[in-house]
Design a protein around this nucleic acid. Structure first.
Length: 505
RNA sequence: GCCCCGUUAGCUCAAUUGGUCAGAGCAUCUGACUCUUAAUCAGAGGGUUCCUGGUUCGAGUCCAGGACGGGGCACCA
């Protein structure tokens, strides 16, 4: 075969519906190449292409090859065409796979006229596989000198700017697949998320915890103070809500003798969207019989240290402009002590707390003293916590699922872990007294709306407690926030692959 | 829910006090090139300036309303 037909390619006439530029016209150029591939007897959607080597492995081999050598090993790689430079009858391609980037060189003489016709049909974004000799170009770039090319998939849509990629945050989130291809560090961050989740499971499994799955459709959304999403089951004709926490069903399993359980799953809260909140997010909850909030602190440290390691986060770094030191043990500070330090009031004296709250602009009229104290804490102390720091021993009345400290009925054995002013984990010694639990479910704190309280009656849960739940420690970690923290992400939308959006206009 | 900001070609961005300002780069098309590196060089085409209305001789630009997004606040133990 010679190349004569190429010179007979008709020049598009200017009179034909305007030649190029709009999205439709850009796609037409690609569809024309698609048709040419079909005419050459090639399937533009490709097929199985076996024995592909990851580019990272190929690069490692290439490092050992002499720059002047022309007898390097034959390798096979596949991936997406990210850059394409044509110098007449010599074409350079930057090929990307999940492990890295590698340059290909294709010469007209070297590949022969059959393959050359295919190369003429390549666009940015196409997916190809090649065989070739691994070596170095004259300018010192590691290169596969292609001897055979297998066309694997045509890209019909125009990719984003090859240098800037996708910048518009709306497009980046709605078209996450493009963001993953073109965004700086985007894929790395989601790989880190997977590694972190693996690490969490590994730490728990090593300690004998069983992973279980509770119901996401529930009659009563308990275990947290949040508004649920409501739905309906048609066949049973019953209202249902999506879970807002994992807690109450995992504790039923403690009653059932599953002494160490955890669940890593999605929960749903019908509330505002922000850089730290998405309506659906991933929660870890773990429960350990015969433990307490102290054992949960050890477990929390173990999980976070392991997760930081696999995420490649150093022990000391800065997040959101604040210093963080992950060297265990993490600092422990009592709730009341922090309030005293930061506000100067006497945390044991409701009048003193109320005065400090008023100064901080916190609403006090007609509200329970512990609710005022809690709001004061959030308004003043929270933002000062660089962390990581375990804030321990909370006011009992705002902790309806928590065991009270022995001899101190007003103090709950609870901690929250703060980093850079953000709550990362929450744990307590679990309340296992069914009578007290029932009473707390019935008690509504003054100044707290029913939907804001986590004290929501669950009679089936009370019935379970009556059969005896062993003393236990329980832990909850917001996985999305943990990933944000360990990958230095400023927004929760950066660590959720497909965050919520309004429908496009 | 409230406040501030943004939206211009497929992508990334310009456009002076309202006046040939509908512009560039990438991408696309045509041509040249067997060692390029965001390849380069020469040429060509590509627009509902988010939508609706208003002010004006004249609106990408000013005003009102709306859509979507970003940030902040509220909400979220």
């Amino acid at each position: 075969m010679h190349d004569a037909p190429e010179s007979k390619q008709p020049t598009p006439s200017p009179s034909a519906e305007s030649t190029a530029g709009t999205a439709a016209q850009l796609e037409k150029a690609r569809r024309d190449k698609f048709d040419r591939l079909v005419a050459l007897g090639i399937d533009p959607w490709g097929k199985r292409f076996g024995d592909v080597m990851p580019i990272a492995d190929v690069r490692a081999r290439g490092e050992g090859i002499d720059k002047a050598a022309d007898d390097g090993p034959t390798v096979r790689v596949a991936g997406r065409i990210m850059l394409l430079r044509s110098a007449g009858s010599l074409v350079f391609i930057d090929l990307h796979d999940r492990t890295g980037r590698l340059q290909l060189m294709l010469g007209k003489k070297q590949v022969g006229p059959e393959v050359w016709k295919v190369i003429d049909c390549l666009d940015l974004g196409d997916i190809v596989g090649v065989d070739g000799r691994l070596g170095w170009s004259k300018t010192g770039e590691m290169t596969v000198f292609v001897s055979h090319l297998e066309f694997l998939t045509k890209s019909l849509a125009t990719p984003p700017d090859k240098y800037h990629g996708l910048v518009d945050p709306e497009l980046r989130q709605r078209m996450r697949y493009l963001d993953l291809i073109h965004g700086e560090g985007v894929r790395d961050r989601f790989v880190a998320r997977s590694r972190i989740v693996e690490a969490v499971r590994r730490v728990l499994a090593a300690r004998g915890f069983l992973e279980v799955e509770g119901p996401t459709l529930q009659e009563t959304a308990g275990g947290a103070a949040a508004r649920p999403f409501a739905t309906h089951h048609n066949a049973l004709d019953m209202p249902l809500v999506l879970r807002i926490a994992l807690e109450l069903h995992l504790k039923r399993l403690l009653v059932g003798g599953m002494e160490r359980v955890f669940e890593l799953g999605r929960v749903y809260r019908n509330e505002g969207v922000s850089t730290r909140h998405n309506p659906e997010f991933t929660m870890l909850e773990a429960y350990e019989a015969y433990g307490d909030y102290g054992t949960m602190m050890d477990l929390t440290e173990a999980i976070i240290v392991e997760a930081a390691q696999v995420a490649g986060a150093p022990a000391r770094f800065e997040w959101m402009g604040r210093p963080v030191d992950l060297t265990p043990p993490f600092r422990r500070a009592k709730y009341d002590d922090l309030i005293r330090e930061v506000t100067g009031c006497d945390p044991t004296d409701p009048a003193s707390v109320a005065a400090a709250a008023a100064t901080a602009g916190v609403e006090t009229a007609g509200r329970h003293p512990d609710v005022i104290k809690s709001d004061l804490f959030e308004a003043t102390v929270e933002k000062t916590l660089d962390g990581p720091v375990f804030v321990i021993d909370y006011p009992a009345s705002i902790c309806p699922l928590t065991k009270r400290k022995a001899g101190q009925p007003n103090v709950a054995e609870r901690f929250e872990l703060y980093v850079a002013g953000m709550e990362l984990a929450n744990a307590y010694t679990e309340l296992n007294d069914p009578d007290l639990q029932e009473e707390l479910f019935r008690t509504q704190l003054a100044g707290m709306a029913a939907e804001e309280s986590m004290a929501r009656m669950d009679t089936d849960f009370i019935a379970a407690l009556r059969h005896g739940m062993p003393p236990a420690g329980g832990l909850g970690i917001g996985i999305d926030r943990l990933v944000m923290f360990l990958t230095a992400a400023a927004s929760i939308r950066d660590v959720i692959l497909f965050p919520i959006h309004r429908p496009r206009a």
